[in-house]
Amino acid sequence: MKDLNVRQTIDAELEDLRRSLLSLAGQAGQAVKNGLWALCNQDRILAREVIDGDDRLDRQTLEIDDKCLLFIARFQPMAQDLRTVSAISHMAVDLERIGDLGVNVAKFAVKLAGKPFVKPLVDLPRMGELFQEMLDGTMRAFINGDVDEAKGACALDDDIDDLERQVFREMLLMMMENPRIIEEGTALITVARTLERAADHVTNLAERVLYAITGEVASASSFRRPRGSRDDDGR
């Protein structure tokens, strides 16, 4: 006779939830990446795809939320199971917001397409890479239960913040010198700000991952540079 394994069903359902979340993370990350790529390469078609893909992302988020509620109702999870399902439910919301921010970047891509760049775009792609690194690291930390990787992802947020401030200062100077580029300049500042916010959502994800793994409430800021030594601007 086959051995009864009461954990089998719970483990399979949690695995399914993890997969769904990973898929959502992949698509939310892709929305930001493609939105930014469309902006840098003036690709209206790709930008439209990102904007149109948002509904699917919203649907997936709701599906994950439903699955989490059903899981809680059916299994009344405790301890790490409970922390994991709670983390998944919260992380889905942050990922959905990240997807929305990707759409915002894509909208600027549509707006700016066909116009010459006011400057070569270097910092924004770098911010996009760092964001992707943070997101990938956080999701890996979640799947592997790796505390250090989650903390490491939080630390990258400092670099993104520095770059955002750099873009802001640079564009401010350029707009002061040449007011005709104000529209493009403010658009690029907003895109940088959007990427910075997307990265903030990743730090929320990392906090959830740390709680799911350790059971201790963690604040992402404690894994970043001390406030005084960050490249703080006076805004």
Partner: peptide
């Protein structure tokens, strides 16, 4: 105890292992 048990045996018991 039910959200963050400190002992692995508690964790295993309350999660049905």
């Amino acid at each position: 105890l039910f959200t963050s048990p400190r002992d692995g045996r508690t964790e295993d018991y309350i999660t049905g292992r």
